[in-house]
Nucleic acid binder design. Structure first.
Lengths: 243, 243
DNA sequence: TGCGTCTTTGACGGATCGTCAGACTTCGAG
DNA sequence: CTCGAAGTCTGACGATCCGTCAAAGACGCA
């Protein structure tokens, strides 16, 4: 009994070691720089042992995505619990995505990689379920804010628009904006100077478009942003230098 | 002289053949299913000859992206020349992105692939320049519409918002939305039922947020959409069944 | 026809993934 | 303490695919 739990602990510890090693490799040399032989060498286990934990390279990526997803859910939950009007709390969600990108740039890159069907289709169903659970967690946190806005009277949605549709808009805008910033270093050359600031303004424009009060001209959301950084994410703000 | 042009024609024809073959392979068996040996076999040229046209596999992807980008610019130009208010013309841009996704699903997948740094960093600068030119072409068409809206008085931008920033918002929203739709078959399970329709509504919400007139509640943009499909993209609409 | 130049070829080296037969470790029963 | 079954670990190996290059071949021209 106690031996089996010791075994289990060893297995878990090894899995963590493998993931940490893989993560460092991706961060250091990119996705292609991470390969199974190197992981085996770095962890001082044989390739066969690595393959007892993960069926293939893709599953390691999937596992890292799940870990990242869990970190993200955590940030979203904290953002959603910010003390303020619903739209301020939604602003906090936006801040958390910014922080996440700064804190874990490698992970965002991996998420994108994972969206490529070629990778996704080789990962076992069980991992996909876990990943889906983290997405659901994020969605729950965000939808909750939209619903609160509706019940508090800050937001009135037309009959044919569900709270989830508003979330989908903000999700698309943020995901797309961050992807473009990451993928196109030459955004400045097409006239988009301060992409990150532009993304924030666009998020507020979208909420303005749904007439989600208080409107951006009627409220100082820059002050809200500073308050979010100071009150909800002080450590993360310091770590990323966002102040 | 005439021999050299004949040579040149042969080279061009072969390049087209290679690209068409590669495109079909990607469409049929995904990115990983496209490999140089198979291309050589299918085109009945040797691998060495293939490599005289393209330095590596990534450059083939890049070339396909350039081709796709040119097709996209073409669609954007036609959309921008739609006969109507600027916001209607911007709606036409949205329609054109929808059509493009339906007409060339494989290409959108490849664009995403290309955003992965691992691929990008292996493609020669010259191809990147061509790709950049197509992006600039798209941007020009879209920015032109925003400027027209400003000069015609339909849109008044704050001092700190450039027309490009508005474009960036719509670009992010559309790119992100289409990526999410493509990458997450389970959007329905998180409460987003009609993702494509939701994306259109979000695009209009964003424009509403910038107070770009006529507002969506003051204009029948569904009618505009039908007119765009009928007048500007009749063939494409028929081919995709969008009617 | 003969010769120099340009083109084409496909076998090969190198990298990497994933496998598997056999070596090794663990652990309980005798 | 010993032994053997069950479980674990290993790294050499087969397979795949990328990109190269020396050699064979095609072409134009005198």
């Amino acid at each position: 009994m106690s031996t089996s739990t010791r075994k289990a602990r060893e297995v878990q510890a090894r899995e963590r070691l493998i993931l940490r090693t893989a993560e460092a490799m991706v961060a250091e040399r990119g996705y292609l720089g991470m390969n199974m032989d190197r992981i085996a060498e770095a962890t001082e286990y044989s390739k066969g042992t690595i393959y007892q934990h993960f069926a293939n390279k893709e599953e390691i990526v999937a596992a890292l995505c799940v870990e990242g997803g869990e970190r993200r859910v955590e940030l979203f939950r904290r953002a959603a619990s910010f003390d303020g009007r619903p739209r301020e709390r939604m602003t906090a969600i936006g801040v958390s995505t910014e922080l996440y990108l700064l804190l874990h740039p490698g992970h965002v890159q991996m998420e994108q990689l994972f969206h490529t069907e070629s990778i996704r289709e080789k990962t076992p169903e069980s991992r996909l379920q876990l990943l889906f659970a983290t997405e659901l967690g994020c969605m729950d946190a965000v939808v909750g804010i939209v619903r609160d806005a509706v019940t508090e009277g800050d937001l009135t949605l037309p009959d044919d628009v569900a709270p989830e549709d508003v979330c989908f808009g903000l999700w698309s805008l943020t995901y797309g904006g961050q992807s473009l910033i990451a993928a196109k270093p030459h955004l400045g050359e097409v006239g988009i100077a301060e992409a990150a600031a532009a993304l924030r303004r666009n998020q507020h424009a979208l909420m303005d478009g749904y007439a989600w009060g208080p409107a951006s001209h009627a409220w100082d959301y820059d002050a809200t942003r500073r308050r979010i950084l100071a009150e909800t994410f002080p450590e993360e703000a310091a770590a990323t230098g966002l102040v």
